[in-house]
């Protein structure tokens, strides 16, 4: 899993990433504890409500300060979280993750 996360981080696209399993982080490359904690709290709350309200959303993006935190739902109650610079084109981040998603879900 750690090697896979290594592929998620990519210069100019994703700065750091982690996997949220339930309400806890299982693996992480985050250097900033604060951002990791915000992402953990925010996305576990958001996706809990998504399943409660059955809205079928599987992706969330939160822009805070100069950063964007993105959460992509994976199978097995997991969320792949990435942090990028707010000025990075969000579609670049999404395309990058969509390519890697099957590897995580395999």
């Amino acid at each position: 899993m750690k090697e896979l996360l290594g592929q998620v981080d990519k210069a100019g696209v994703v700065e750091s990433s982690c996997i949220l399993q339930g309400a806890e982080i299982s693996v992480s490359t985050f250097a900033s504890r604060n951002h990791e904690t915000v992402a953990k709290k925010a996305f576990s709350y958001v996706f809990q409500n998504v399943s409660k309200l059955r809205t079928k959303h599987d992706e969330a993006h939160l822009e805070i300060g100069g950063k964007r935190l993105s959460g992509f739902m994976l199978n097995g109650e997991r969320v792949l979280i990435c942090m990028s610079d707010k000025n990075t084109n969000v579609s670049l981040v999404r395309e990058h993750i969509y390519l890697l998603k099957p590897k995580f879900e395999a």
Binding site: V38, V46, H57, A60, H61, L62, I64, G65
Partner: peptide
């Protein structure tokens, strides 16, 4: 302290 929250987007 992390900065201003600009937006939150949910999609699928």
């Amino acid at each position: 302290f992390l900065g201003h929250i600009d937006n939150l987007v949910l999609c699928g």
